[in-house]
């Protein structure tokens, strides 16, 4: 999981325009500044392209935090 988190770190910093941001598995839109709805769309799009995966419609709505997203990403990257 740490390897994925390490790769996500610069993506979040760039998209959320915060060079000092440190994300953890518990990070979410509720506790990260600037993670608004448009930033969310940008994050999803960049993550898909960086990791060469695709999320399906509705698939992200049940996720609570970055840790949940990483678990979903791991499943997709195994396919």
């Amino acid at each position: 999981m740490n390897e994925i988190l390490d790769r996500l770190q610069p993506i979040f910093r760039e998209v959320l325009e915060n060079d000092d941001l440190v994300i953890t598995e518990m990070s979410s839109a509720k506790n990260i500044e600037n993670w608004d709805s448009l930033a969310h769309i940008n994050l999803v799009s960049v993550i898909e392209q960086e990791f060469k995966i695709r999320f399906a419609l509705g698939e992200l709505e049940t996720l609570n935090n970055v840790g949940d997203m990483i678990e979903l990403m791991k499943k997709k990257m195994k396919r």
Partner: peptide
Amino acid sequence: VHLSDAVRRVE
């Protein structure tokens, strides 16, 4: 160059 089904975004 890219479609994101989950958020209905094209690039």
